[in-house]
């Protein structure tokens, strides 16, 4: 008897993904860095490294430090700029048979719109993910994502300039993430992804220097997974638009947690550093999970948490 191939397709508003596993922005480069180990065509999608209007050098080093079950980073959104991305990196991404999502950010509300406008009419990008949450840039991401009204205004501005579905990526560094989620939904976002990194720091007790030159950075990895899962659960209950779960997903057992909590898809980030094939292993693992549990389509488990 041949095993039934479960249907892993999932939808994010108008987007259809072949499976619910995407790579998170800033952890998979521009899709080529890992291509000798991971066939990106087998993934649900790729979210490329955050793009800004102008190239950005990034923060002074040290930029990363390992912490218990995780890591802190203060890369400073180093990137080649949206125009160079479209010219140099997108042509290769365009050849892929998977969804490519461009992550963007700006320093002003207007600039968010300008970056979105630069992607207007550009082929090969299926959606825009708006970073309102990166905690590393002075006067940048953090200020937008912590205020529901400003988050909504950023969303509106991007929607005004973009010709693609807009997903807003939320910061967990807020008192009530549901308020921000509702605000960006009202502003017209087609989807929400969460969580970005949690702000943290580490100190070298011998030198008394902060371990990151930026002093603080964003915590990622399995250390943040329970926080991420709870916030995903909260947001799923607060909005009607699709939610993508992100935060410390390391293997196929972690992904269904987020799906059961109600996420329509997940993004894999820090895990790719530890195991470059993590995203693909999760796709394969989900298949086996479905087969093992008699699930014929992955969306059968989305939002199915039972109550005690």
């Amino acid at each position: 008897m041949t095993e039934i191939q479960p249907d892993l397709k999932t939808s994010l508003g108008s987007l259809t993904l072949k499976n619910p596993v995407l790579t998170a922005s800033g952890t998979f480069g521009y899709g080529q860095e890992f291509s000798s180990l991971v066939d990106p065509n087998l993934l649900g999608g790729i979210v490329v490294k955050g793009l800004s209007l102008k190239p950005r050098a990034g923060n002074r080093p040290p930029r990363t430090v390992e912490t218990p079950c995780g890591m802190l980073n203060a890369i400073g959104l180093a990137n080649m700029g949206v125009d160079a991305f479209v010219e140099k990196r997108l042509p290769l991404l365009r050849e892929l048979d998977t969804v490519v999502i461009a992550n963007i950010y700006g320093h002003t509300i207007d600039e968010y719109g300008t970056v979105a406008a630069r992607l207007k009419g550009v082929e090969g990008i299926s959606a825009i993910e708006v970073n309102i949450s990166c905690p590393n840039v002075d006067g940048g991401g953090m200020a937008f994502g912590t205020d529901p009204d400003i988050s909504a205004r950023v969303t509106e501005q991007v929607l005004k300039k973009a010709d693609k579905p807009v997903i807003v990526k939320l910061s967990p560094n807020v008192t009530d993430i549901r308020a921000v989620a509702r605000a960006v939904e009202r502003a017209g976002a087609e989807g929400i992804s969460l969580i970005n990194t949690l702000t943290g720091m580490a100190i070298d007790i011998e030198t008394r220097l902060p371990r990151l030159a930026n002093i603080s950075g964003g915590l990622s990895g399995p250390a943040i997974r329970p926080v991420a899962l709870h916030m995903v659960y909260q947001v799923v209950k607060a909005v009607r638009i699709p939610v993508i779960g992100i935060g410390g997903i390391m293997d196929y057992r972690d992904a269904p947690e987020f799906l059961i909590a109600g996420a329509k898809a997940v993004q894999v980030g820090t895990a790719s550093f530890v195991n470059p094939r993590a995203s693909l292993d999760i796709v394969e693992g989900l298949k086996a999970f479905c087969q093992g549990h008699g699930i014929t389509a992955i969306d059968e488990i989305i939002g199915t948490m039972r109550l005690r």
Partner: peptide, 26 residues
């Protein structure tokens, strides 16, 4: 030698400042 997260150019964590005249700042 620096601390590194990915080792393959994806995370941009292992930056060192380049000297003036180089194409890239890091």
């Amino acid at each position: 030698e620096t601390s590194m997260a990915c080792g393959v150019g994806a995370c941009h964590g292992c930056a060192v400042k380049s000297s003036s005249g180089q194409k890239k700042p890091y």
